[in-house]
Simulated scan of single mutants.
Amino acid sequence: MNYRNYLHKDNPVVTITVKKFGQITLELFYQVAPNTVNNFISLINKDYYTDLIFHRIIPGFMIQGGQGDKVKSITGEFAQNGFENPLNHTRGVISMARTNDPNSASSQFFIMHQDSNHLDSAYAAFGGVTSGIEVVDLIVNQPRDVKDRPYDDIVIEKIEVDLKGKVYPKPELYL
């Protein structure tokens, strides 16, 4: 399903400020992937992402950030892991990165540069860009090495969240 169907004035709003590039604003969809949203909000509230980088950029695919100190993982909220998540990986969707272990998502996230339906049902999509997609375009087109790491660090100056007066629980960690 297209993420625009989930946009709502009561959703939490995240603002990612990227040094020298600008801001990306997203809405998070608790109704789609509640524990993933709780995890992301919890990390934002701890200032976890401040000064981390977008460490992987692939034109026509996505930009990935959030790689830092080890964070405990959560259960993956997607169909291949027994969880109904109807959100498709279309341009502007934010999703959680993971290893081959379906329950290894922790802090790394990626924002889709272009549609990538091969990720649908296999990764926990949990929100979408509402403004700043041009910043995603600028980032993804930076020079990079053979491992898709930008030559120059693309720094997440800060990430902030507006919870719209709601309280979100701590994430349930994968045991």
Rank of each mutant, 00 (worst) to 15 (best):
S116G: 09
D51G: 08
L119C: 06
L87A: 12
K72E: 06
N88G: 09
A79Q: 08
R149N: 03
L163N: 15
V32C: 02
I44P: 04
D115Q: 15
D152Q: 06
Y123M: 03
V37K: 15
M1T: 15
L163W: 14
P86M: 01
I57R: 00
R56L: 01
G68W: 07
V71W: 11
Q114T: 13
I139C: 01
N100M: 06
T99Y: 07
K147E: 06
L28I: 03
I63M: 00
L43V: 13
D153T: 15
I58A: 00
N85D: 06
M62E: 01
S104D: 05
S73H: 12
Y48V: 11
M62I: 02
N45S: 13
V129G: 06
I133P: 14
F126N: 07
P150T: 00
F21M: 06
Q31A: 09
D145N: 13
G66R: 10
H118R: 12
A125P: 02
Y49W: 13
Y3R: 04
E27G: 03
Q31K: 15
R149W: 01
V14P: 11
N35H: 02
S42W: 15
F126C: 07
I94V: 14
K166E: 05
S107D: 09
D162H: 11
I53P: 02
K19H: 11
Q67N: 14
M62A: 03
H113G: 08
Q114L: 11
I156S: 09
P169S: 14
N117M: 12
F78Q: 09
L43G: 13
I159Y: 12
F83Q: 07
S121L: 00
D51F: 07
K20E: 07
V18T: 01
V13W: 11
N11C: 08
H89Q: 12
I159G: 08
V93L: 10
I154A: 02
Y123I: 04
L28T: 04
E77N: 08
G165S: 13
N103K: 11
V146Y: 11
A97R: 10
Q23G: 11
N117G: 10
D51H: 14
K166A: 10
M96F: 12
S73C: 09
A97D: 08
A33W: 03
L28Y: 05
K158L: 04
L26N: 07
A122W: 08
L119T: 10
G92N: 11
Y6M: 13
Y168F: 15
G132Y: 14
D152Y: 02
S106P: 09
M1I: 15
M62W: 03
F126S: 08
N2S: 09
L52S: 08
V136I: 13
A33R: 04
V32M: 04
F21V: 03
I139F: 01
E27N: 08
V14W: 10
T90S: 05
V135D: 02
Y49R: 12
Y168C: 13
G165N: 14
N39A: 12
T90D: 05
Q23M: 15
A33E: 03
V155Q: 01
K166I: 09
Y123D: 02
Y48T: 12
E157V: 05
P171M: 00
H89Y: 11
P150F: 00
G66N: 06
P169D: 11
G68Q: 07
R4M: 06
Q23F: 13
N81Y: 10
P34Q: 14
L7H: 14
P12A: 04
Y49C: 05
V32A: 02
T99S: 14
Q114G: 05
F21Q: 04
I74V: 12
L43N: 12
